[in-house]
Nucleic acid binder design. Structure first.
Length: 420
RNA sequence: GUGGGUGUAGCUCAGGCGGUAGAGCACUGGGUUGUGGUCCCAGGAGUCGCGGGUUCGAAUCCCGUCACUCACCCCA
């Protein structure tokens, strides 16, 4: 056992898996860029109050899952548990919403939640997220959802599905909430759940326990209590999704754990990951900008969990980003040859070719074995005999045939042979 | 915070009715003094998570502890 271990609940990606991680991040980011979203790089920690107000005082995230500590100056700092609050803070602080709207941004990076780790749930998690701010158009909700779907498809995933609902808005949610609470208070629930009835009654609908599910089976649903305006918004989101060819299922019991969501909310679900089946989620948050001291601007966005997406790729057997790491593997025999090959490797790399060299005085057999494992298509073998005639052996590792190439012509030859 | 499971070689795991440690993969070398992938041979590598107890003797039995892991809860 080693002396040090990584902090609890933090996934680490090393080769070859890390190449997949990069591909997942890049593919999802590319889907956002393709729709006009620009990258925003933000702090990993913020003023604690930003999350308390932005995410919601009553949420589990704020009440028990934040990494909060005082810095040397006595300020209360919190490692970001989610992305939207920070984006909105930056937008307000720098007046990014003064230009043309919607403002479209995407981010990528680590988030932190102090939770008990389990499969797919980590204390440090990686997300790619987008935010579209300033335009309350159902077509924009649909675009955001379609971006995620496009990203997953590009990765090669087919087993994900989209769950959709509307949480209503200020004009109908308070009334519905009261009605739901009234219903729930009449049920014989345990103490913990009763507390939740008062804090966030919506979440009780999402309880996984069979006995609770049964009790709330005929609870009133938000979907049946939407205001005219919210219902119309929701209908149009669905229409646009159909037009986009993005399949979805409606789940009127879908609940998000963060307080800021209004109207459209959605979750990307993948079965087969264990208990943590949500690989991404998001929705509209029309009141958040104003709550954080900005203009009265609407917003819609999502966060996609990269770690869980990695798990989804694993169970589906798709391996984005997998490729050989090397085109040509150089095998020197002796010091003279090594000197020549090291320099040649530099020239080849300069020409954009991926090249490795057998270092450490490996024997020929060992070096050839390393060439094989590197995935290179060709090996360059250089020994005394070749040096004497200013040439090098170029071996096709798949077919096994080998030819002698003048050293001065190797770069050009390599280019030709690799492009073929 | 509450439960269950598991800790033996770098990785995946056998062994477990007590007698000082094994396999496969990986790695290194050799069979082939200038040629890899298959095959054969050899080698390095482990305080059996840690501490205590029982015993002539503990990886094995008992107690404690730590870690990892899955699930509840919650969420990406």
């Amino acid at each position: 056992m080693s002396t040090f271990a990584a902090p609890k609940g933090i996934p680490e990606y090393y080769p070859p898996e890390s190449a997949r991680f990069l591909a997942v991040r890049e593919t999802l980011g590319e889907a956002a860029r393709r729709a006009g979203y620009g990258y925003i790089e933000l702090p990993l920690f913020e003023d604690t109050a930003l999350f308390a107000r932005g995410v919601g005082e009553s949420t589990d995230v704020v009440t028990k899952e934040m990494y909060t500590f005082p810095d040397q100056g006595g300020r209360s700092i919190t490692l970001r548990p989610e992305g939207t609050a920070g984006v909105i803070r930056s937008v307000i602080e720098h007046g990014l919403d003064r230009g043309q709207l919607p403002l479209k941004l995407y981010y990528s990076g680590a988030f932190f939640r102090y939770e008990r780790p389990q499969a797919g749930r980590y204390r440090q998690l990686q997300q790619v997220g987008v935010e579209a701010i300033g335009v309350d158009d159902p077509a924009l909700d649909a675009e955001v959802i379609a971006i995620a779907d496009e990203g997953y498809r590009r990765l090669g995933l087919t087993g994900h599905r989209i769950e959709l609902t509307s949480l209503g808005d200020d004009s109908c949610r308070p009334e519905y909430r009261a009605k739901l609470q009234e219903f729930l208070r009449g049920l014989p629930l345990d103490e913990e759940t009763r507390r939740r009835v008062e804090l966030n009654p919506l979440r009780v609908l999402d309880d996984k326990r069979p006995e609770v599910r049964e009790m709330v089976a005929d609870a009133p649903l938000m979907a049946d209590h939407l205001s005219q305006q919210a219902a119309e918004h929701y209908e149009r989101v669905k229409t646009h999704l159909r037009d986009l060819g993005v399949p979805f299922t409606e789940n009127p019991r879908l609940v998000r754990g963060l307080d800021y969501y209004t109207k459209t909310t959605f979750e990307f679900v993948h079965d087969g990951l264990g208990a943590q089946s949500g690989i991404g989620g998001g929705g509209r948050y029309d009141g958040l900008m104003a709550d954080l001291g900005g203009a009265e601007l609407s917003g819609v966005g999502f966060g996609l969990g990269l770690d869980r997406t990695m798990l989804a790729c694993e169970v589906e057997g798709v391996h984005p980003g997998d490729q050989s790491r090397c085109d040509i593997y150089c095998v020197p025999l002796g010091e003279q040859a090594k000197r020549r090959l090291v320099s040649l490797a530099g020239q080849l790399r300069h020409a954009g070719i991926r090249v490795e060299v057998a270092y450490g005085g490996k024997g020929l057999k060992g070096a050839m074995k390393a060439a094989d494992r590197s995935g290179a298509r060709y090996a360059l073998v250089l020994g005394e005999r070749d040096l004497a005639e200013d040439s090098v052996q170029l071996k096709d590792l798949a077919g096994g045939q080998q030819e002698s190439v003048p050293l001065s012509a190797v770069v050009e030859k390599a280019r030709t042979v690799l492009s073929g």
